[in-house]
């Protein structure tokens, strides 16, 4: 017990550093603007007013729907592409290491460098303030991450199993669809969840490329910092509302990632 005190102490500190801000936000969301700022904090009866206000005074229902459409849409586009890209990297060594690194390198630039050219292009083709436009923009962010994440799921045993299928009578495409993809399924699900979360939380592209009708949750949150000051209690409620889906998805992400790692045990 004494022996474990050290690690436990560090872990408790670490957990607290993660949890306390979140609990603070939760507490703020259940109070009003005035008591939210009071130091030292005082106990107030929890109220749900803020959670109602974000839907009545603010269009958070629309923001939520926009976020959902863009996240699901961009993942639906990026995931099949990333799967095929990862497969090509793995089996055919397409483009070799240079291409693999190039794909990742696009993510090493500050997004702000990419967002302006993208804005200019989208303006020309009429994709500003448009769900499809933002979806495509998010695909540019998701695709490299998802592809890199999926590469490892096509390596190892899958290769030999696929060879078996090809001798059995499968074409390359059949081997990909009926063997490689099902074997990588846990990884593909995990990558899909990651794609949803990345798109859900994305701010900069959404800020530049969306308009009033297509604004997503992060944009809605930032809108609560008005010139009249920060609607802190409402912001806290909106924040809690925005992060809930991610909280629901995270355990699945973890489970599928682990399942994917364990499935490698064909031997």
């Amino acid at each position: 017990m004494i022996k474990r005190a050290g690690p436990h102490f560090i872990l408790i500190l670490f957990s607290a550093s993660l949890l306390l801000p979140l609990l603070w936000v939760l507490r703020t969301s259940l109070t009003n603007k005035v008591s939210a700022y009071r130091i030292p904090p005082e106990w107030t009866e929890p109220i749900a007013d803020n959670y109602i206000a974000i839907f009545t005074d603010q269009p958070f229902g629309t923001f939520f729907l926009n976020s959902l459409i863009v996240a699901v849409g961009s993942t639906a586009i990026a995931l099949p592409l990333a799967t095929m890209l990862a497969y090509a990297f793995c089996r055919f060594n397409t483009g070799g290491m240079p291409l693999r690194l190039t794909v990742l390198a696009s993510q090493m630039l500050p997004p702000v460098i990419l967002v302006l050219p993208l804005f200019s292009i989208f303006l020309t083709v009429g994709l500003i303030n448009n769900h499809l436009g933002l979806m495509l923009a998010h695909v540019t962010i998701n695709l490299p991450f998802l592809a890199w994440m999926l590469i490892s799921f096509f390596e190892g045993d899958a290769r030999i199993v696929e060879e078996a299928a090809r001798v059995e009578g499968a074409t390359r495409l059949q081997a990909f669809l009926f063997v490689a993809v099902p074997m990588a399924a846990p990884g593909i699900v995990a990558a899909g969840l990651l794609g949803l979360i990345l798109s859900w939380n994305e701010f900069l592209y959404a800020l530049v490329l969306s308009g009033k009708a297509t604004a997503t949750l992060p944009i809605g949150l930032s809108a609560l910092e008005t010139h009249r000051g920060v609607e802190i209690a409402m912001l806290a409620a909106a924040t809690m509302f925005s992060i809930t889906p991610v909280f629901v998805l995270l355990p699945f992400l973890k489970r599928y990632l682990i399942k994917g790692l364990a499935l490698g045990a064909v031997k």
Binding site: R166, G169, P182, M183, V266
Partner: peptide, 19 residues
């Protein structure tokens, strides 16, 4: 193509379809 050679192969690690 391997599929057109009408041969069968058995691998050391069996390579069964896990799904």
């Amino acid at each position: 193509d391997p599929r057109d050679r009408d041969l069968a192969i058995v691998f050391q690690n069996y390579a069964l379809y896990p799904h």
